[in-house]
């Protein structure tokens, strides 16, 4: 699995397409608290963790249960944990859930890349 993180609108998907040959047809955009693992590129993972925060699903447990299904995928997620601790409980939970999940995914990943203003940097 290749993990790509970066701030909002930094060009993560374009980077994944250029660097790892991701095709549009194989992209799954998260909107709910479930993931279609048949697609080999999972993007906007932060929308999945937001939905999990709202529904009460444990995002990390869900990924762990389906580990063999994303082993060879490219996963993209916004790094949304650099701001001030949010005042709202839901945003706080979202930030924590996303951070914890990404630590796990980062450990499992063969490669980790960060995208800054469209430019990628390999962290792992």
């Amino acid at each position: 699995m290749i993990l790509v993180i970066g701030g909002a609108y930094q060009g993560k998907l374009d980077y994944a397409k250029e660097s790892f040959g991701v095709q549009e047809a194989s992209v799954f955009r998260c909107t709910e608290d479930t993931i279609d693992f048949s697609k080999t590129c999972i993007t906007e993972l932060e929308q999945f963790t937001l939905a999990c925060t709202r529904s009460g699903r444990n995002a990390r447990a869900y990924l762990e249960e389906n580990r063999e299904k994303w082993e060879n995928s490219v996963i993209l997620c916004q790094d949304l944990f650099c701001g001030v601790v949010p005042l709202g409980a839901e945003m706080r939970a979202w930030r924590q859930e996303t951070g914890r999940l990404l630590q796990y995914l980062s450990r499992e990943a063969a490669e980790v890349h960060r995208v800054f203003c469209g430019l990628g940097q390999r962290l792992k």
Partner: peptide
């Protein structure tokens, strides 16, 4: 300015500004 890595859901006006600045940034970085 890098304003893209916080956990917040902004209103559409702010989001338009963030998206716009990120676009400007990516073009300049290129």
């Amino acid at each position: 300015d890098y304003i893209y890595s916080d956990a917040a859901l902004y209103d559409e006006v702010t989001e338009t500004y963030r998206r716009g600045l990120a676009y400007v940034d990516r073009c300049l970085a290129k």
